[in-house]
Design a protein around this nucleic acid. Structure first.
Lengths: 140, 140
DNA sequence: TCTTAAATTAGAATCGTTCTTATTTAGGAT
DNA sequence: ATCCTAAATAAGAACGATTCTAATTTAAGA
């Protein structure tokens, strides 16, 4: 992705632009397959071997905290990261994840929830996770 | 809970009944607050100090594999266990979890999904997670 | 009661993640 | 352009929840 665009994403989250953050967000945007922290570390370090592991964890946390990226958990508790936060859902089969776009379902649930009052709770977001089996070979 | 009932639950999952499994499932059914593995270990070991930590992890895995118990992940990747698998949803605020019962939403989504075909995917189950903030003091 | 696969024990080992301290740096101020 | 300072990063040690290993015990069917 265009470096300028990535810079802007980071800036508009109110964060300093550093080469490390650029590298991480770039890698995350390049790979649409919900990489784990480990996978990201490998990808990032291929281009920038000097970037420290701890830094990448730090950056991921920062991105999550500032809403640039979201965490997805698989059924075996593996953390995967997702830089595309556009009202899609996740399909899980063990540790495999795929995206599932269904605007109709999204709007339906959103509308329903907007009319529901949950005592002592301020709803901010919701997530739908579909569990099952991928028929074809595993997708990574 | 009645020991006989717990025994039957374990038996009907096709598992051998052992004192350790009874203790774990009992503890899980006693505490409706989605304990973590650590919390469960403390609870179980209070009554049965001789039960090994590894055994409890084993038992929890076995229960999950046999559908007696389900894992819930909090936003910080803490695993919590839930022995009540009755079409309820989870409300998350950081590492806190509460149940949320809404039959109408459950049926609505279920019905919708039954009419949706996802390529290469065999749907088995779904989950809805609501994220936000608890207004009152944290609940554990 | 016997038999055997399955379950449990105890604690060592693992390894993804966090922490610590020193160093460097981004970006606003001068 | 240079300076300043809080924030970010480096390096690797430390941590700790979970898994693993090998020996021992046990549930439950024969």
């Amino acid at each position: 992705m265009d470096t300028e665009k990535i810079k802007n994403k980071i800036k508009s989250a109110g964060l300093k632009v550093t080469p490390q953050r650029l590298a991480v967000l770039d890698a995350l945007l390049e790979s649409r397959n919900h990489p784990t922290a480990e996978m990201l570390i490998k990808i990032v370090q291929k281009k920038h071997p000097y970037i420290a592991v701890g830094t990448i964890y730090n950056i991921l946390d920062t991105f999550v905290k500032h809403g640039l990226v979201e965490k997805v958990f698989t059924e075996n508790n593996v953390i995967r990261y997702d830089a595309f936060m556009d009202g899609h859902f996740h399909i899980l089969d063990g540790d495999e994840i795929k995206d599932f776009y269904d605007e109709k379902l999204f709007r339906m649930v959103k509308k329903y929830l907007s009319g529901v009052n949950i005592p002592d709770f301020q709803l901010e977001d919701f997530e739908i996770i579909l569990k099952g089996k991928f028929n074809s070979g595993k997708v990574n």
